[in-house]
Design a protein around this nucleic acid. Sequence first.
DNA 1: AGAATGAACGTTAGCGTTAACGTTCATAAT
DNA 2: ATTATGAACGTTAACGCTAACGTTCATTCT
Lengths: 318, 318
Amino acid sequence: MSVSRAIRGVEGVSEKTRAEILKIARDMKYVPNSNARSLAVANSNLIGISLPTFAGEVFADILNGMRRTLDSAGYSSVIDTTEYNPDAELNWVRRLLSWQPAGIILTGLDHKPETVELLRASPIPVLEIWDHTDHPIDICVGIDHFKAGQMIGAHAVAMGYTRPAFVSAPRGHDTRADARLAGLRTVFSQDMSVPVLSARPDAGNSFATGFDGTAQLLDTAAPDIICYLNDHMAFGGLMCCQKRGLSVPEDIGIAGFNQLDLASVLPKKLTTVRTLRRLMGITGATNLLARINGVAVEKSKPLPLELIPGETTRPQTS
Amino acid sequence: MSVSRAIRGVEGVSEKTRAEILKIARDMKYVPNSNARSLAVANSNLIGISLPTFAGEVFADILNGMRRTLDSAGYSSVIDTTEYNPDAELNWVRRLLSWQPAGIILTGLDHKPETVELLRASPIPVLEIWDHTDHPIDICVGIDHFKAGQMIGAHAVAMGYTRPAFVSAPRGHDTRADARLAGLRTVFSQDMSVPVLSARPDAGNSFATGFDGTAQLLDTAAPDIICYLNDHMAFGGLMCCQKRGLSVPEDIGIAGFNQLDLASVLPKKLTTVRTLRRLMGITGATNLLARINGVAVEKSKPLPLELIPGETTRPQTS
DNA sequence: AGAATGAACGTTAGCGTTAACGTTCATAAT
DNA sequence: ATTATGAACGTTAACGCTAACGTTCATTCT
C-alpha cells in the first residue's frame, strides 16, 4: 500500500519513504497496470470519441480542441470513425462501454435508438458535439445548422440572388448537410417561392465533388448562386465556373461554409460562414470534464455563427 | 465459466445453453468488463497510435488505412497527437504502456532515447510509420524522404532549373522536411554546386505558410523553382506568384508533395510526388497485426514514390 | 453388466490494484 | 510514568474475468 500511495502521490507516506520507493520503481522499470487500477476503482481515465471521419479540417479542428483539453486533465482518448454509419457507431459504443470509460463523445445527433438507449441506461456522461439540440442524450455543444442555412439564404436574398442551388454531402448520412439545405429552403420558399436545386455527386474528394456538382447544376439549370457544404467544395465549384468562363460573382455567386484555411490565400475572398471549431472542441471537452467531476453544466450550449461576406457573392445591391 | 465461454464464443458450451445465456445477458443489459479481461489475460485489445497532428490529409489518410485494418481485427485505438514534440511522445508512451496494449504505432523515427529504450525493453510490438529506416525499433513501413528530395531535385535539374529554393515546415521538429531538403541539396550541389535557399515562415496554416514563404524568397532572391513541403503549401506559393504577376512555369517552377486532393481541381496540374498514404496505413497495420500474432514480417518495408510531372514546372527541355 | 470415454459444466485461484480498516510507535499531553 | 494522539505503514478483501483443472453423466465399447 505504501508503494501504491507513493506512486499515486497521495497522502500517507513520508517523503523519505516515497523517494526510496520512486527510486526503486524507476530502477526496476516498473510500469503501473491501468487495467488493474480501472478494475479496482470501477472506472478508467479513457474517454471515447466518435467522429464521422478524419478527413477535412472540420473534425480535425474539433478533435484538436478536445484532445488538448482532455489530455491536460490526464485522460487518454479512444477514437473511432463511423464514416457516417449509425450501425458502426452502435458497435463502437458497445465495445467502448466495456472499458468503463470516464466519458463518451459522439458527433452529431443522428444515432440509432439502441445507441441512445444504451447510453441513457449507463451512468457515463455523454457529450454530443458539432450539432445543436435542446434535448441531448446528456449534454451537447454545437451549432444550429438549420439556422446556418437560413443565414446563408438571407444573405443570398439580400444580395439579390433569385435562382439558388446547393451542392451537398457526397455520400452517407450527413444530417448537418440536410439541415443546412432545409434552412436555406425555408428562406427562399418564404420570400420568393423559389425551389432550391441540389446536387449530390460523389467524386472521391470534396474539391472534386464541388467541381462535379457544379458542372451537373450548370448543365441542367441556370442557378445564379450556388451554396456548398464547405469551402473546399466551394473552391471546386469556383474552379468549375472559371473553366466554363463564368465570372464570379457577376454571372454566379459562390458561398462556402466553415471558413477553412484554404480561403486565406485565395485571390478572391470567399463568402462563407465562420464556425468556431477549436473553441467548440475545448468547450465541449471542458463541459464533459465538469460533468464527469459531478459539476453541473449547461445541458445544451449553442456556439455563435458569423456570416463572412466575401467577393464571390455580389456586394449589397443599392 | 459457462457464461464466460458462451459470451466469448469459445468451445465448451452446448448451443442450447449458449443461447439461453446470451438471451439472459441481453435482457439484463450485461456489459463485459474489458479491464478485468485484460487484467486476467495480461494484454488488451487496444492499440496506441501517435501522430504529429490531426491537421492535413497526410496523417488522416494514413490513420484511415490503419483504423480500418485494426478495427476489422477487433482492436480499438488510443490515439494521441504530439505536435512534433518528442517529449509529448515520451509522456504518451509511458501512459499508454500502462494499458498493456497489444501494439504501438509511432509516426516517424525521431524519438527520445528514453522512448526507444522503454519500447525496446517492453515485449510489445512497435510499428514506426511514414518514415523509412533499416534499423527500426521493431518494424517499420514508410517512404524514404531523402530519396524523395533527390527525386524532385533530379526532375528540376532535368527541366533546366538552376536556382532552386525550398519552403519548409512552419514549426516544430519535422525531420521528414529536413530529409527532403537534404536530398534536394545533394542533387544541386553535386550537379551544379548551387545552394538551395530555404524559407520557414509560420503563418498559421499550410496555405498561408506557402504564400508567405514564397513572398519571403522572392523578396530576397530570384529562385527559378520553388519546392514545397506539400501541395497545400505549393498552392499558397502559386497564389503568391500569381499575385505578383509571375507566370508559372515560365518565370518560375512550382513543385509540391503528396498529391493531395486539392490538386484534382486546379486548372494547372501541379508537379508533385505521389505517396501511397492509405496503402501505407493498411500495410503498416497489417504487418503490426502479423507481428502481434507472432508471424514473422519484413522488418522494414519501403513504399514506392512516383514523381508526377505537371504544368507548374517546365516541360522537358529539348 | 461394467468400464472407458469425452462433452458439458463447475470450482479454484490468481491477474495488479485500491478502499477500508488494523497495527505500530514516536511524541505530546496529563 | 502513564495515557492519549495521530502519522506512517501493513493486512485483507474485493473488483470481474479466465486458465487450469475437477466433476458429472449420457453414451459407447468390451
